[in-house]
Design a protein around this nucleic acid. Structure first.
Lengths: 362, 362
DNA sequence: CTGAAAGCGCTTACAG
DNA sequence: CTGAAAGCGCTTACAG
């Protein structure tokens, strides 16, 4: 949790400006000059300084130039934190996601940032590391800072903790995964549909034994993609051997073990559907090193997927579009849109590149 | 610039809590309860509420439970913005970099975030898009919010605008590229050394005509890598034909044009040194599609570089380590370290994978 | 153990 | 056109 208690390194500096009480002001914000200091130096009232700083009308050219000179001489910069306290709007939003470094989430972050910028807001960003307690801690810390809104890729499965915040006016949009146990705006990809199409594509290329390596089942997107996998198999009248399904963490060792399992045994799969970008990368490492060709379709696109041999066929989400859509919805709420919570589902695109068109071995 | 002037969607809500003047409080922060409301409800003084909220000693169990009940009933959450105004430390830092979505910068962001978190700080993140005016606007907006510190990957070439902020106590660490026209802590990779080793590696493999495709010369890292390239060539007694050097924006078309130029003409290069991750990716697309093999070493590692055929030999920086180092230095400053500005240079690693060991054609 | 007063640096509402 | 007073929601310094 944020802890503003530690002393500032600038605490030793002496206060600057005229008419200040050093005992109270010394070191605070590095002893920065305030509007009061500017007013004293320019020989005007506080409100006049405020008018000049904020470009409000009703100040004579002469007065204004005296104030500007004082601002310049003192190196004054308005303290927006104080301004915010009085105005009630912080002009900042928070973004909580799984991992800022993940190639799926980083374009999404950038998109949210761009929309925030276009709307005059600053962005707090933080990673939950897929730990529900961390998501909650971050989201609530952001609310305590009174962000105007929150874009959140949930890690947890119960978001009732946000209800008081939302009721108090914090605009909240859930992204990539839906809110749970709370009504809220949600923007996500149609994961089940994407998965169905991925698996149907493999079936169309002759596969009957298809494996699925997904993220932990508790993660909504993982569950949805698993559902899509099962539905596509069922629609084609194909049975699913549970040895072909490997849900769990996306670290390479776990993924590798899951693949080994479904590729050995009496009924090895001839094709693999990889449930997200992390899984696909490991699957490429495993499958491309094997003698017998195994077909592969991945969920999520990734850089250079087209340059591998064969190129990797994927169901591509558009992370930037997801981020943009969520942030735009957020600012529409901040602009007064109080219609019922919306759920926006974006379609994913099948990108055919080679790995998904490999025919079954034998 | 942030604009907190727009009305809040919650502005229509009526104020809650007892003893508040609706005309002033209605809608502010969504009409959230304040310590004053909690105090009134619990029948205690403001300071007692503050003590309970902050876990300060000297409150009887009975008083405390009355206060806690009021907090619970009202859904009170301390307004950290107000707290910060009084305490002088915001427990937030700012990160300004080129592009949050860039695979080089996103692990760096995550690393800065982790260190901030470990030090109880929240992180503001923003992209300069390599536009100096935007870097300055962002950095100053962050200073106006009174962030405790700033980690900045500069886009501009003159950082004197930050001098008053630094003097006022904003701890500032420049990352990836040095500060210009101002003394400040800097953490970066030894770019010239990395470039020298990349080019020496190609020379050791028999190349004499080596091209360099770099970012815009105005960017410090690009200039340093160009210098390393020239030094390695000079040390080996090799001439540099200026047609082999292509500096400029890293969009694919420009990179492609630069490559075409150095690969055609009377003295085509037999090897290419790509100046950063964006350039390398395009270089791979161009070179791997050509009939005659051309050797390639890239600056910056990237995912799946080892899975391409041949694998891409690179000079790998460690973006997470860069970010961590910078953020740790920042917090050391905030903890009172006032030694002279430091310059930390991290070495880059040569990762041999195949593309850099292709012998010269012919 | 408890609380009233003053203040953080601004803006608001109002009066001249 | 200009400014003194009050207040945003907290914490500090001090007094009981």
């Amino acid at each position: 949790m944020p802890d503003p208690d530690r002393p500032s390194p600038a605490a030793a500096r002496t206060g600057s400006g005229s008419g200040r009480r050093p005992s109270a002001a010394a070191g605070r914000y590095g002893g920065r000059p305030t509007m009061k200091d500017v007013a004293a130096r320019a020989g005007v009232g506080l409100k006049t300084v405020s008018r000049v700083v904020n470009g409000e009308p009703g100040v004579t050219a002469d007065t204004e130039s005296r104030v500007r000179a004082a601002i310049e001489a003192l190196g004054f910069r308005r303290n927006d934190s104080a301004r915010i306290l009085r105005k009630g709007r912080t002009a900042s939003i928070g973004l909580v996601l799984e991992d800022l470094a993940d190639p799926f989430y980083s374009p999404l972050s950038r998109a949210v940032e761009e929309v925030a910028r276009a709307n005059g807001s600053l962005l707090f960003a933080g990673s939950s590391a897929e730990v529900p307690a961390r998501e909650q801690e971050l989201a609530l810390a952001l609310c305590a800072r009174r962000v105007d809104g929150l874009v959140i890729v949930p890690a947890g499965e119960d978001h009732r903790y946000l209800e008081p915040e939302m009721a108090a006016g914090v605009a909240t949009v859930f992204l990539d995964r839906p809110a749970q146990r709370v009504e809220a705006d949600t923007v996500l990809t149609d994961n089940a549909d994407g998965a169905r199409r991925a698996v149907a594509h493999l079936i169309a290329h002759g596969h009957r034994r298809i494996g699925f390596v997904g993220d932990r089942s508790a993660i909504h997107t993982a569950g949805e993609r698993l559902r899509g996998y099962r539905e596509a198999m069922a629609r084609a009248g194909l049975p699913v051997d549970e040895a072909w399904v490997a849900m769990g963490p996306t670290d390479p060792d776990r993924v590798r073990a899951g693949l080994d399992r479904m590729l050995s045994g009496p009924h090895p799969v001839t094709a693999v559907f990889a449930g997200n970008n992390r899984v696909t990368v490991t699957a490429v490492r495993v499958l491309y090193g094997r003698p017998g060709p195994v077909a592969l379709v991945g969920f999520d696109d990734f850089e250079l997927a087209d340059l591998l041999r064969p190129g990797v066929t994927v169901i591509a989400q558009d992370p930037a579009r997801l981020g943009r859509t969520a942030a735009e919805l957020l600012f529409r709420r901040l602009d007064g849109d109080d219609s019922p919570p919306r759920r926006v589902e974006l379609a994913a695109d099948l990108l055919v590149r080679g790995s998904g068109e490999i025919p079954p071995a034998g």
